[in-house]
Structures are given as structure tokens and as C-alpha cells.
Simulated scan of single mutants.
Amino acid sequence: MKMIRICRSALVALVSLLAPAALAGQTGVAVRAENPLAVARADEVLTLSWAQLRAALPALSADRVRVIDAASGAEQVTQAIDNDGDGTTDELLVLTSFWPGERKELLVQAQAPAAAPAARVYARHDAHRDDVAWESDRIAFRIYGQGLWQASEFEPLVSSGVDIWPKRVRDLIVERWYAKGHDQYHRDTGEGADFYTVGQTLGAGGVGVLQDGRVVSARNFRAHRILATGPIRAVFELTYDPWDAGGVQVQEVRRIAIDAGQNLYRMETTFRTANGADLPFVTGTVKREGLVGSNRRGAQWGWLATWGPVERKNGGHGSLGTAVLLPSAQFTDVAEVENHFLALSTARSGVPAVQYAGAGWTASGDFHGVEDWWRYLDTFAERLSNPIRVTIGAASALR
């Protein structure tokens, strides 16, 4: 018997021709999405203009929108998102995956989804501690507010650094861990734990400035806004009191977002200097005994990373990688200062500086060694440099 070998692109084309008859004649807005890379891309989030979709499909609303894959008939996970919290939808997010070079035809319809999808991201504010914690189905983080100074049972912590909650399950754990209580979520009972010590450092992706050979940064956040909690993307914003950055008063606002399936969160930091001047700033990750730092600068995105053993407190185990990614054009240098590895950059006053930061743990099963962590960062940077090509068409019907 002869085996017939069909290449993946031919298979995709064949499936497209065999779209379910039940979809024939259905109307909606046609969207074409194409992967320009010869690599598979799992968990890509497509961003579609809500205004453009509504112009072609006026009946569309945040609770009446669904997206169908024209080839398979499968309903895609979506999220209507209000990016600025003004009560008006700005974008439609669509979660999907691509084979190398794959092109997809999607149909956006003004119909309610068949079922509510399970959330793969989350963000919440803990009023008692005044933390904001956020997570994907891969890993979790948190950052501290000023209320922590008044929580008498905790040691006062002055820090705008980012904490890591490494986990080894795919479901969302933030609510459960807070419910356990402070002492208990530092112990791994099968889901992971908070093994990471931030203290008065930048943690895993905090920002600051270099002053006389040391890192200076904002204190704990003063105010927060949670803008989205999933199921595809969680977004929140933090406001800090003005702080002294080497003799220059700086106002700082951070917007953080995390997407399903990702170990890295997106951080958009807007500095406003009192004199309107540019601000040389640093983004850091903690340097501890046993950690090895590395960096790579690609054509469009570069990264600074660490790898080494998890802190062995409370039964900590495995190895942890941390990283900061930033545009190569803004990646001016790297430095080791006291207990930090630092990526050096410059921001214009009032103009958001975009970076990505995050971590990966061997016990999650996603990374077996430092080479896996580097490969993940290289692939993430390549995907940022080559986004999915999206074209929104007019209202049409599947034939």
C-alpha cells in the first residue's frame, strides 16, 4: 500500500474548500489573517478595530459578537475590550493559532457566542494588602500599593518592583492563593508558590533610574484601575506619586497587560518629567547568587534575561528564568549594579515606553533548561517583529 503524503498548506486549503454547509449563506464581516512566518504560532491574539467592524455591521454589540473560522466552522474565543475605561468598546480581540504560513478566513457576526469561554487570564486588586495581582494560564505576578504600609500584620514594604508567583497548573490561581493567606501561598502544595523575594528591588520588570551607582525608583502605587479581566487579555493601570529621578521630578503611570498562553506581560510606562526632558531609565531583574545573566539584541527587539535556581525558602525547587524585552532601537546598554541586571533605555516625556517582562519555571513543564528559556524569548521577539497580517473586509456571506 502506498502512503499519500499531503503537505500542511495543501491540507489547510483542502479544509477551506470543505467548510460546513451549515455556514453557507451566513452573513458577517469577513476578516483575513495571515501568518508571515514559517513557524507555528499558538495563542495569537488578533486585534480588530471595533469602529471598523461596526461600520460594516451596525448590529454588533459587546454582548452580541462572535467569530467563526470559515474553514472549520469553529467558533473562536473573543473579547470586546474598552482600552481606556470610558465605557465604549474600542477593539475586538480574537484568540486563535496558526500553522507556518497559514492564512485564515474569519467571519465576525452580530450574534451572541454559543457559550461563555473559560478565562485564561485574570487581574484583581486585593483590598486588604493593596496589591494588584495578574496571571495567565502559565504564570502569575503582583505589585504593591501604598495600603501595604498600613497593613499591621505585614512588614512594611516600600517597592514598585514586580513579584513572581510561579505556578505548575494551567488554571487560574490568584483568587485561591489570596484565600489561603499570606503564610500559606509561600508553600508549594502542588500548584506552585510565591518563592520570589522582591524587597526593595525592581523585582522582575520594575523600572527606575540610575543615580550614583544605585537604582532609584517610585514607591508603591497610589491608585489603580483594572480595565479588563479576560478571558483573553487582562489590563490594568497604576499611578505613582511624583518621585525624584536624579534631581528631576517624575510622574509615572504604568499600564500592564497579559494575554492567554504567555509568560511575558506587556508594560507601557509613561514618564512625565517636570522640565519636559527625556529620561534615561532602566528596567531590571533581580541579581542573586547562582543566577546567570545574558542578553541578545535582534534587528527589532532585544532581551535581557536571567536563569538560575529558585530561592530555596519554603521548599522552593527547580530553576527560574526572568526577562525584559524592549525595542532594539531603545536598548542602549546593559549593566550590573548591586543586586540588579539592568537594561538601559531612554524615554521621551509623556510618550509611552513599551516593554515586555516576565518569567518561566522548570516545574511548569514548559522549560527544561536555559536553552528553552532563550528559545522562548527569541520566538516571542520574532513574533513581535512579524505580527499577523489582518485585513477587515466588508459585510459578506459565506458561500
Rank of each mutant, 00 (worst) to 15 (best):
V39I: 13
D126E: 14
S385F: 03
H368T: 07
A218E: 07
Q26T: 14
V370L: 00
I388V: 09
A115Y: 02
A24N: 09
S72H: 05
T96N: 11
F380V: 03
A19Q: 09
V370A: 15
V334Q: 10
T189A: 12
G161L: 02
A133M: 04
Q79W: 13
D86W: 13
G276W: 15
L326R: 04
E191N: 10
Q26S: 10
S217F: 02
Q52G: 04
F271A: 04
S349E: 14
G145E: 01
G28N: 14
A30Q: 09
A299K: 15
F98S: 11
K313Y: 11
A245L: 05
L148F: 03
W301A: 08
A335R: 11
H224K: 02
A260N: 03
D194N: 08
W303C: 11
F236Y: 08
H182T: 06
G181T: 02
Y122A: 14
Y240C: 02
D183N: 07
V324K: 05
Q200C: 05
L48Y: 00
R129D: 06
Q211E: 12
D372S: 14
E338T: 07
Q79S: 14
E237D: 08
P100Q: 12
Q211K: 03
V310G: 09
G230H: 07
V77I: 13
N339A: 13
Q355A: 01
G318P: 12
W243T: 12
A40C: 10
R103G: 08
R124Y: 00
F221P: 02
A357G: 13
L57W: 09
S9L: 07
A70N: 01
G302H: 13
V334W: 06
P117L: 00
R138V: 07
S364P: 15
F367I: 13
Q211T: 07
A323H: 00
T391V: 09
R120H: 11
L106D: 03
W149L: 10
M267V: 15
N386Q: 06
L264C: 03
Q249Y: 02
E311P: 09
G101T: 12
L377Y: 08
